[in-house]
Computed example of a mutant assay.
Amino acid sequence: MPPSLPVHDRPAAGFRRVRLERRSVPGQTYLLSVATLYRRPVFTDDDAARAVCRVHTAQWPWRDSAVLAWVLMPDHWQGLVTLGERDSLSTLVGRFKSLTSRAVEDRHRVNGWLWAKGFTDRVLGKAEPAMDAARHLVGLPLRAGLVRRLGDYAYWNTAWLDGTEP
């Protein structure tokens, strides 16, 4: 009979740790990513991109969560969000996907679907300043070669633009 593994070395402990990290924690800041269905470049169409951007201007879809920064790339959306008390990550992302799907024209959906199933998330580390994460996020269009200057890309925003701390 093989020797018993210490509790921290057992596979179940690792899986449990992953599940805990993916849990929705109010007040925690997350980097979120949502891809279009089949990674289609839907948002090269300005009307579709503007429709999704308009959802960001309303407070009610986010409720008590705070969107610190976001960028809409041709085939996905990424955001830096501090989760509020009233929603889980799944609920918040589901609401965003639902509202934005209805906002774009039918021709951009496949059998009614705009977004791929699920989303990815990463907890922002305690030592990782949110402003640095926001800078990295909004710099994606530059690094992807979509524009030469960030000011030439219209589909992003950050809470730090007005010079105050969110």
Rank of each mutant, 00 (worst) to 15 (best):
Q59K: 13
V93A: 08
H56F: 11
V71S: 02
G79Q: 08
W70L: 00
R54A: 15
R54Q: 14
V71D: 06
G94I: 03
P61L: 00
L89Q: 06
F96I: 15
V52Y: 09
L68R: 13
V55E: 13
G84M: 05
S90A: 13
W62Q: 05
S88W: 05
D64Q: 03
M73E: 02
G94S: 11
R86P: 07
V67I: 15
L68H: 11
R95M: 14
L68K: 02
L68I: 05
E85W: 08
F96L: 13
H76G: 15
T91E: 10
Q78R: 12
L80N: 00
V52W: 10
R54W: 09
L89E: 04
M73D: 01
V55C: 10
T82M: 07
W60D: 12
P74S: 04
A69F: 01
A58H: 15
D87G: 05
P74N: 05
L89Y: 03
H56N: 14
W77P: 03
M73H: 03
R54C: 13
V81T: 09
V55N: 07
E85C: 09
C53M: 11
M73A: 02
L80I: 04
V93W: 07
A58P: 01
W60G: 14
D75C: 07
Q59T: 14
F96S: 05
F96Q: 05
D64N: 04
C53E: 14
M73W: 03
H56R: 12
L80H: 01
L72W: 02
P61G: 01
D87T: 13
V52R: 08
V52P: 06
V55M: 09
S88Y: 03
G94K: 05
T91N: 10
R50K: 11
F96E: 02
H56Y: 13
W62P: 03
D87E: 13
R95S: 10
L92C: 07
R63M: 07
R95Y: 04
T82K: 07
D87S: 10
A69Q: 01
G79E: 10
Q78I: 06
T82H: 01
G79S: 15
